[in-house]
Lab assay of single mutants.
Amino acid sequence: MEVRTIKVFTTVDNINLHTQVVDMSMTYGQQFGPTYLDGADVTKIKPHNSHEGKTFYVLPNDDTLRVEAFEYYHTTDPSFLGRYMSALNHTKKWKYPQVNGLTSIKWADNNCYLATALLTLQQIELKFNPPALQDAYYRARAGEAANFCALILAYCNKTVGELGDVRETMSYLFQHANLDSCKRVLNVVCKTCGQQQTTLKGVEAVMYMGTLSYEQFKKGVQIPCTCGKQATKYLVQQESPFVMMSAPPAQYELKHGTFTCASEYTGNYQCGHYKHITSKETLYCIDGALLTKSSEYKGPITDVFYKENSYTTTIK
C-alpha cells in the first residue's frame, strides 16, 4: 500500500517557510505537534488534498525554529505562539472599519479597549522592536488589523473576551517599542525636605499616572512627601515624541487643539466601556464603527496623549 502524501510549508514567522512532505494517514499533531492554519487549530486533523502548498504555523520545537521565533517575536515564552494563534482565530472574524481616516474595530468580545489602543497607536510616533509587531502594525494602518490585535493580546497575556485596560495595554506595548531616546527629568520640591531631581528613561519617561493635564504637570502637581507634608512635583525636561497622561476616570474637559487623542471610560472596574476622542479640525468621538463630532467635550476621561518633541522648564 502506497503512502499518500502532500507537500506543505511549516513556519513560526510566515517569513521562513520549511518544506514538509506530510503523510495523509496521520494527523498534523502526530507529525508536527500543535499546528495552526489561519489561526485555526488543526492539530487533530489529517492532511487533505486542499492543504497542498498551504502554510501551517507550528510551535518552535527545534533550534532553527526557536531562533526564527525569537528573532521575529522577541520572546522565548513557549506558550506565546499558541496564544497568538488562538487569538487570531477570533480577531480574523472582527470587522476593521476605516473611521475618520483611522483603522478602528467594530465592537465584539469586549474589544473596546483594543480599538482605543489601536486608534491611539496610529496617532503617536512609535516604532516597535519585534519585527512581528512592526509588520502587523503597518498592515493594521492599511486596514488589516487582525494579526496586530492578536499579537497585542498575546504580548499582554490576554484572551479574547476578557476586559482590558488601555493604560495597561499601552504599557505592555511600550515595553516592546523603541523608547531608548526618551528621557524625563522631574523635580520634587518640599518646604521641609528641599528639592530632589529624578531622571527617568524609556517607558517611565512617557507615562504618568495622577493627572490628565500635561500643562498642569509642567506647572506642578501636589504629591505627598515622605515627611508627610505636601510637596510639588513638576516637569523639568521632556525628550520624547509623545507623552501619555493618565488618571482614574473623572469628568474632564478636553479643549480642541490642546491634545492629540484621549480615552474615555464609562462604567466601573468590573464592567465598563471605552471610547476614543481625537482632536482634528474639530473633536471626534470614535466608538467602534461609530463616529460623532463636537466642538467641545466633557466626560469621564482616563488617558490623554500629547505630541511632544523637546521641553525644558522655565521655572527657576
Results as ranks from 00 to 15, higher is better:
E162V: 14
T116V: 12
T226H: 14
Q20K: 11
V22G: 06
T169M: 14
L126C: 08
A87T: 03
D135V: 08
Y113Q: 03
D13M: 05
F305N: 04
M170H: 00
G29F: 10
V236C: 09
S240Y: 03
V22D: 03
Y265M: 13
L133P: 00
M85E: 02
P130M: 01
L163F: 15
S279R: 08
Y252R: 03
G161E: 01
L173T: 02
L37G: 05
A289T: 08
V221Y: 07
V58F: 03
Y311T: 07
T313L: 14
L119Y: 04
Q30T: 02
I286H: 08
N110V: 02
K229C: 14
A115D: 05
S86A: 09
L59P: 14
L81T: 11
A150E: 00
W107I: 12
E253H: 13
K307T: 14
N100C: 13
L114K: 00
V188G: 14
H276W: 15
P131R: 03
R83K: 09
V304C: 06
N268H: 03
N14L: 03
N49L: 13
V3Y: 11
V189A: 14
H176C: 05
S295C: 13
I286D: 11
K46Q: 05
S294G: 10
T55L: 07
L81W: 04
G29M: 05
A40C: 13
D135N: 15
E71Y: 11
E281R: 09
R83P: 00
P224W: 13
G220K: 03
N268E: 09
G228V: 08
F9D: 05
Q98P: 06
Q122V: 01
S240N: 06
P131V: 01
S240G: 10
K44T: 15
F80Y: 04
S104N: 01
N187R: 13
L81P: 10
E52V: 11
G202W: 00
C149I: 08
N49V: 14
E264I: 11
Y208F: 14
C112S: 14
T116H: 04
G210I: 05
P60A: 10
Y274W: 13
K229F: 09
C182L: 06
N111E: 01
P47W: 00
D287I: 03
K95R: 12
G202C: 04
I286M: 06
W94E: 00
Y138F: 12
E296S: 14
G33P: 01
L254N: 07
N178H: 09
T226M: 10
V188F: 09
V67C: 11
E125G: 08
N16C: 12
G228R: 05
P78Q: 08
L119G: 07
Q20R: 14
K218W: 02
F70H: 13
Y113H: 10
N187H: 04
M170Q: 01
R83C: 06
P97K: 07
N110G: 00
D135L: 08
A150F: 01
R4Q: 12
H90V: 13
Y138N: 09
L200W: 02
F259Y: 03
Y265I: 06
T199Y: 09
Y137A: 04
Y73H: 01
Q195Y: 10
I315A: 13
G143F: 05
Q230P: 10
M207T: 09
G33D: 01
T211K: 01
F242Y: 04
P97F: 08
P78W: 07
Q222I: 14
H273I: 08
G210S: 07
R66F: 10
P241I: 06
Y306T: 05
C112V: 02
E281C: 13
H18R: 12
T159K: 12
M207I: 09
A136V: 02
Q122T: 02
L212H: 08
Q237T: 13
K307N: 14
F56C: 05
L133T: 02
A145T: 02
T232L: 12
S181A: 13
P248C: 15
A40S: 10
L118W: 02
N178D: 12
Q230E: 13
T43Y: 12
H176Y: 08
Y274T: 07
F56L: 07
T292K: 13
F217L: 12
F217I: 12
T5R: 13
D23K: 13
A247M: 09
I45Y: 10
V166I: 07
D77W: 00
T11F: 03
T226P: 14
E204R: 10
T226C: 10
V8Y: 02
M85V: 06
I301S: 05
P249W: 02
T27F: 13
P248M: 07
A150S: 01
A262F: 03
N14D: 11
E144D: 07
R167F: 14
T313D: 10
L65W: 07
H51S: 02
G164H: 02
K219F: 09
G267F: 11
Y172V: 05
G288Y: 04
H176K: 09
G82H: 07
E168Q: 04
G267D: 13
Q230N: 06
K218M: 07
S25I: 15
I152G: 01
C190L: 00
D109H: 04
E71R: 13
A40Q: 12
T120N: 05
A250M: 10
L186S: 11
D165K: 12
Y284R: 07
L283T: 11
